[in-house]
Write a protein that binds this DNA or RNA. Structure first.
Lengths: 334, 334
DNA sequence: CTGTTAGCGCATTCAT
DNA sequence: ATGAATGCGCTAACAG
């Protein structure tokens, strides 16, 4: 016995109305007499009819699904954003097609193509890196796209994030204030605008404010993982730096533990400020001081922005910077 | 200028062939003369034609997307499974529609309905809880469903996981071996079969093997989060237990830190074994001993199983138990 | 190897 | 308030 899919046509016949009417009640169109609506609803229940979203998508040209491109769900930062996105998406009856892109541009392009082929109504991009090919691809589609947790360095795309430059500048200034002369900047790929452009600019700005000369050897680039943090700890230790700003909590935890294992006392000998305030910052000992990004909110607001764009609504602010805070725990003095 | 979507028909006309032929080259059907294939490919490139997956889905009755239902991406365990799923899905050209269900059964039902309406070709379920309504819903659809990282307590659904009972039994036995008379069992909701049925059974089995009487007051049920772990630590401390098996790394980290803050020395005064061996276990100090679940593999194998089911292939083993290991770090003696 | 013909299940004019 | 007709873009027999 094959799955006898029952269609809008079946209910129409059974209810003695036209399929147009059934379509109307299913879509909540008010132009239906209450009694016919009830009749149709009854048949729908009786036949256990379920609208086919694919057919609906083809006919209406709206898929009610949005694509999400992120480097890796496994990273707490991206997962939190995704959670925010998913929650407001659900609120607006959208579904999420999620794609892990890793760091490869080719993969990102492939993934975008995929999403577009599926006729997603919009996409949210959390990849941090972006090159010209990808930018062109974004530009060549009419499908709305918003960046979440990162900013296009050309500001061409709508985005929701925090002011990364300012956040880092604050962090570094704080570190300098407590007496550190040599502060390290530890981040994921410098190729990514968030790191190479905004965060690094904040770092340099703070140095300048404090009349400290920028020292290239204090900039550490690494993979975005706990193990990578552990690994780079010894390099940092031998750099003579006495403090560091780190762009990712996983990396920061690695640096913290790596340094500690090397006999470096945190925060007495070395101070650390991390970036995302995920649970990780509270799990490690000493607990990490951190920038507080409203991750969930970034995702939620990005999704909200996207709904507006998809509806063709005017949005006055296409590049939204949410407020951030700082929390000082045990990895900083004072 | 509206986005003039160009269709298979445009390509056909421009290339001087029928749409059937275009469809063939797009789908890699071998029955096309190389030269016509080339001609068509050229036109496709020239017109920048992109197949519409929705239309394709409607016509072929296959959406090449699979639905994933998980409690919360934000949990490292589920995120890791999701990663495994996504990677092999990509390998087989499937896309993932991800839905966070939290713990609510109603939400799960709603989410499943959604997925089915979108005509997903299969679904992977990682929710741990399952009640009769949900079981019925699963049973009433022809869409293949596989459980990942959890087992249907009635074994009615295909699943991929580890032998949770055995894993816990090993853990508890080890704890008893090192001299602990009172070992606590700390887990997420006991309502979930993984916890209430399998894990708890392993706990009891180990007690029985060692002729220790089961003590209800040593069973702690809590939310699945770091903060919840912190909170329950004091209760555990006053229970006189000297060791604990914990079902989630986040909870375990909370218990560990909570206990430590209470002045309890780990592992001297209290031993802990956790369950998922996520990075968390290595970030905390002392590092957590843990069951090692091949999380990524569970996801990957589950997805692979699903592809077989979707192809109607025979599978001899519908309930797969992947091997697990134990890693002993600093939260256990010896 | 290639073209013709039907739908897939639904939303949407346009009439009535 | 309701029905009839059309087509969304593509796959899948079936011919030839």
């Amino acid at each position: 016995m094959e799955k006898q899919t029952i269609t809008i046509y079946d209910v129409a016949r059974e209810a003695g109305v036209s399929m147009a009417t059934v379509s109307r009640v299913v879509n909540g169109n008010p132009n239906v007499k209450p009694e016919t609506r009830k009749k149709v609803d009854d048949v729908i229940a009786k036949l256990d009819y379920h609208p086919n979203a694919v057919a609906r998508g083809l006919a209406s040209k709206r898929s009610t699904t949005i694509g999400v491109i992120l480097p890796d769900v496994t990273n707490a930062f991206f997962a939190s954003l995704a959670r925010g996105i998913d929650d407001v998406a659900a609120m607006y009856k959208y579904n999420i097609i999620m794609e892990n892109s890793d760091e490869s541009i080719d993969r990102k392009l492939e993934v975008l193509e995929n999403l577009l082929a599926k006729q997603v109504d919009g996409v949210i991009y959390m990849g941090n890196s972006i090159d010209d090919r990808l930018r062109d691809a974004f530009k060549n589609t009419k499908t709305p796209i918003v960046f979440a947790g990162s900013v296009d360095d050309k500001k061409a795309m709508p985005s929701v994030s925090i002011d990364y430059k300012e956040a880092v500048k604050n962090s570094i200034s704080k570190l300098i204030e407590t007496g550190n002369k040599k502060v390290a900047f530890v981040s994921g790929s410098i190729e990514e605008p968030v790191n190479g452009k905004y965060r690094l600019a904040g770092y340099k700005a703070a140095l300048k404010d404090n009349k400290i000369k920028f020292d290239e050897s204090l900039v550490f680039e690494t993979a975005r993982s706990y193990d990578a943090g552990i690994k780079i700890a010894s390099e940092i230790a031998s750099s003579k730096a006495t403090a560091a700003y780190v762009s990712d909590d996983g990396i920061a935890a690695g640096v913290l533990n790596g340094l500690t294992d090397l006999g470096v006392k945190i925060p007495e000998d070395f101070e650390i400020i991390s970036s995302n305030n995920t649970d990780i910052t509270k799990m490690v000992r000493p607990q990490l001081s951190s920038v507080v990004q409203p991750m969930y909110d970034i995702g939620a607001v990005a999704m909200r922005l996207l709904t507006k764009l998809m509806n063709g609504e005017d949005v006055d602010e296409r590049n939204i910077a949410l407020p951030f805070e700082m929390v000082f725990r045990q990895s900083t003095k004072d």
